[in-house]
Design a protein around this nucleic acid. Sequence first.
DNA 1: CTGAATCCCTCGCGATACTG
DNA 2: CAGTATCGCGAGGGATTCAG
Lengths: 133, 133
Amino acid sequence: MISSKEMHNTCHMSDKCIKYNECPMVLVQKILSGKRKIMILWYLSGKILRFNDIKRRLPDVTQKMLTQQLRSLEEDHLIFRNVYPVVPPRVEYGLTELGEKIIPLLEMMHGFGAEYLELNLKNNNDVGMRKTN
Amino acid sequence: MISSKEMHNTCHMSDKCIKYNECPMVLVQKILSGKRKIMILWYLSGKILRFNDIKRRLPDVTQKMLTQQLRSLEEDHLIFRNVYPVVPPRVEYGLTELGEKIIPLLEMMHGFGAEYLELNLKNNNDVGMRKTN
DNA sequence: CTGAATCCCTCGCGATACTG
DNA sequence: CAGTATCGCGAGGGATTCAG
């Protein structure tokens, strides 16, 4: 069994990750760096939702942008897309088997976010008020 | 003690998160959705690095973009920035106490990325070849 | 209902030059 | 070395329309 610390070090460019594109962290960075990816995955955790179900939960997202994010997640095999040939059309999204493996990560994110908020309340900071990343 | 599942549900817009901006997941989404944030935090885990140390580890990042990402992380109090008034200038970056709390998350990301890569090798997929998110 | 396709414009981002 | 400042292009993303 390789320790977490060892794993960590192998991922630094200057250390053992010969090819940058084979680094697990680079992969995760790419997969998650969409503007709504984390929220979408979170909403799909343990559920299957239709397009508008997701859209309704994401304030200020346009149909075009949401479609893009969903396509991207689908390309990465984290979510599946099921089209029912009925009228009106019915399209369902859910986590793939691979996608489900990210749920513990999402839950830990939630824990971190809660911890962060708690500290934030005490210090009167305001993270959410900035414009971009 | 509240269960993970309960925590999870409280975060869905349609459920208990009255104010969207107070949802821990929305916060995490905002904090992490930068294009290089995860990699920067990862490189700073347990280390203190100078500007060029970070730049060297991030292929194809411009000085301008890196500065932006660093400023953003600093605003969110995840990293600190220490300027030494010497010549030539010396500026060091590292995780704050708050930032260090994200390390377990990063390590779990690494684990997920590794798992993902393993599956990817078997199925001959190619996540890293797309253009954007 | 769930898209795809256009139009159009902002601004993200790279390139370059300059400063303490 | 570690930045700011400026310019300029092209992609990102909004609004709207059309389609199955």
